[in-house]
Design a protein around this nucleic acid. Structure first.
Lengths: 107, 107
DNA sequence: TCCATACTTCAATTATTGTTGAAGTGTTGG
DNA sequence: CCAACACTTCAACAATAATTGAAGTATGGA
C-alpha cells in the first residue's frame, strides 16, 4: 500500500458518517449491507449516503456487488489490515500494535 | 478516546505533509524535532509547516515544548496507541491487529 | 537595549469537500 | 412493456481546508 493509498484511506475514515458506515459494515460481516439498510440504521439521506459510500469505495475500503435490485457493500478487511500494518510499522515507533488485548492466542 | 477525537486524528494524518511530519517525529523519538529541522528535511515552507504542526497538535497527536528559541515537537505515542486500539477494536472485526510481525515478545 | 533568530498568527485567496433536490440508470414483478 | 423500486449521478451551492506573504511574538546574544 503506497503512501497515497494510506492518505486516501485515512481521509475516507475521517468523517463521522463514513466512520459509522464502515463500522456498521465491519459489524455486518461478509454478508454486507445495502444502502437502504445503512441509511435506515444511520439516518442518512440516500444521496448523502451514496456519496460517502463512493468515497469509501474509491479509498479501497469497501467492496461493492449487486444482488437483484440492491447493491451490497462490504468492508474490505484485507485493505483495513494493510492500513493497520502501515500505521503500526511507520507511526508507532515499531512497537507492536498497542492494542493486542486478545494477545497471543496461539501461544 | 471519543469518536470525535478519532475523526480528528484520522483527518490530521490524512495529508501528505502531515503524515510525513508525524512519521519523521516518530522516527526522531522522544527528543523530537524543531520546525526548522523538519522544514529542512521535508522541504516545506515555515508558514505551511507551522499550520500543519498546529493541526497535528489540535488533533492531539503531537506535544509541543519550548527549548530556548526553538520549539520542539514530539509524537504523542500514547495517543497514537489509543487510535490504533480504537481502529483494531471497531474497524477490524475484532481480529487482533493485522500487523504483529514482532509478535509476542513476552511469550 | 537593540538586533537577529526561530517560529507563529493573521488575512486574503484558492481549492477541496459536503449537502441537497432533481433527473437518470438498472432491475424486478405484473 | 410498463410501473415501482433501489440506488446513483448531476448540478448548484455552502462550508471547510490549504497556501501564501506580511506582520507579530518570544528568546538569546552583542
Amino acid at each position: 500500500m503506497e503512501e497515497q493509498d494510506i492518505i486516501r484511506a485515512l481521509g475516507a475514515l475521517a468523517h463521522d458518517i463514513r466512520l459509522r458506515v464502515f463500522r456498521a459494515l465491519v459489524v455486518a460481516g461478509p454478508e454486507g449491507l445495502t444502502p437502504g439498510r445503512l441509511g435506515e440504521a444511520l439516518a442518512v439521506a440516500p444521496t448523502t449516503l451514496s456519496f460517502h459510500l463512493k468515497e469509501l469505495c474509491n479509498a479501497g475500503l469497501l467492496l461493492q456487488a449487486r444482488s437483484g435490485r440492491n447493491l451490497i457493500y462490504r468492508a474490505d478487511y484485507a485493505r483495513m489490515g494493510a492500513l493497520m500494518a502501515y500505521l503500526t510499522e511507520n507511526c508507532c515507533a515499531g512497537e507492536p500494535c498497542a492494542a493486542t488485548p486478545p494477545a497471543c492466542t496461539n501461544c
